[in-house]
Design a protein around this nucleic acid. Structure first.
Lengths: 253, 253
DNA sequence: CCTCTTTTCTGAACGCGTTCAACTAAGCGT
DNA sequence: ACGCTTAGTTGAACGCGTTCAGAAAAGAGG
């Protein structure tokens, strides 16, 4: 019989202290070609690869921690030795996707010079890349929305992917011949990323075949954003623009 | 030993067929004052009241279905006879809150006639009413974000509360001396409700003491919205306004 | 070779939301 | 009274994510 402190099941938030150190990118000094990676690194990678493959093939719900462990040939506790939670495993899946989004958007960004087509290409690339995982996204979106989740786009753990994404929209602007209000200019990449989150929000709930409605949203919203950005220099809109920039600066954590 | 089809645990989406009919609001014809409610109705109410009280007192996570059943003096299966899932129980909590929001906003709506203060009062009332449940909201927000959840604000099950909320913003406009673009006017209540969802989204993630930042957001965003609504009739903005209304009409499911 | 520490790994146990076969209580026609 | 149908109720069982005491493997020092 178990006598220690009772487990907390699904509600657990605290993280345990007995934890493997952050994965070293390089091996310690050693000239023998022998094991290219330490044992732990190999196990960690095995578990991660197995999980990502299963996420792709079976979706979120069917990829249980037990199934991942069984498929990888380890005990379930071993998976938790390397990854604090299932969500952390999903985070790697998410990072993978973002990498592919960047790659998918690259050709269009190299070819186009106007703002609207550049923005449109990136947004459509986002949908193209994630389309195969629409159902997956629906299930996992809920955990990403929780304020305490590491998957939350605003969380510290997501800082890396977030800055990658914001950087993508910075590229969209940098390569474009567009002249927004200079005060707005600095915050615009982040605002475009927020708009992108809005598109994702709509996409996740979009049940139309092939998520056609989301394409409609993008094609309708891009010219609007384009026009608003151009209009931001207009005298009547100046105070509005100024208020917007002042507000988002006050709200940034 | 159990031999039937294995349970599906937390991933369950299908709803069973053996289900109690929708609760009749009135009792069948009967002149005896006898039992004011049928046995089933009393049990249902007992479970619901117990659950709502526990949500208030202990929060979402600590209010387990077993605990609710124990506190109400019934078996856990009995709770599931009346409510398909824990989320459906939460939905009643949510409806309760919305009722209180409406009541909290009423005095200000009766006193004010200008658009901005009316909108501001409703948004602040929303924060005031839900403030005691900020932690609760954080935990339960994640399930509300799932596209398949009945708690999702866009779901058919939420149609009632949603229309109540949109109606509140219709009141805000109806009683105000404001003249937006007539094409925009019809969609404006829904747009204001969307803005309110944005405020809630920010509020849920707002960790500042007393959620002061959310107050800042409201006080900053309301004059902006006010100005934009007033500006929507401006000639330069007409095409933009028209595009906005056309787009949101195309996107409505 | 033997000890001692650190890293890696194991699997039973926990509490959760949910399901379901079986039981009891109530209503109803005869 | 009696069977018969329906409404209401029970609680053990399921699979899930997660935890943890301890076993096994790998190094380190002699």
């Amino acid at each position: 019989m178990r006598l220690g402190r009772a487990g907390r099941g699904v509600a657990g938030h605290s993280r345990r202290s007995r934890r493997r150190p952050a994965p070293a990118t390089v091996a310690p000094v050693s000239d023998a070609p022998a094991p290219p990676t330490a044992r732990g690194d190999r196990t960690r990678q095995l578990i991660l690869d197995t999980a990502l493959r299963m996420f792709r093939e079976r979706g979120y719900a069917a990829t249980t921690m037990r199934a991942v462990a069984r498929e990888a040939g380890v005990a379930v506790g071993n998976a938790y030795y390397y990854f604090p939670s299932k969500e952390h495993l999903v985070q790697h899946f998410y990072a993978d996707l973002q990498e592919r989004l960047r790659a998918a958007a690259a050709p269009a960004l190299a070819a186009e010079t106007a703002f609207a087509p550049r923005l449109r290409a990136v947004l459509h690339a986002g949908i193209d890349t994630t389309a195969p995982y629409h159902d997956f996204a629906g299930t996992f979106f809920k955990t990403a929305a929780a304020p305490t989740s590491p998957l939350n786009p605003f969380s510290p753990e997501s800082a890396g992917p977030r800055e990658t994404a914001v950087g993508l929209f910075r590229d969209v602007l940098d390569g474009a011949a567009v002249k927004p209000d200079p005060e707005l200019r600095a915050d615009l990449p982040e605002l475009l990323w927020l708009a992108y989150l809005g598109v994702v929000l709509y996409w996740v709930h979009d049940r139309s075949p092939g998520q056609r409605r989301t394409r409609t949203l993008i094609d309708g919203a891009v010219p609007l954003i384009d026009r608003l950005v151009g209009l931001s220099r207009l005298r009547v809109l100046r105070p509005v623009t100024r208020e917007v920039t002042a507000l988002i600066r006050a709200l940034r954590a």
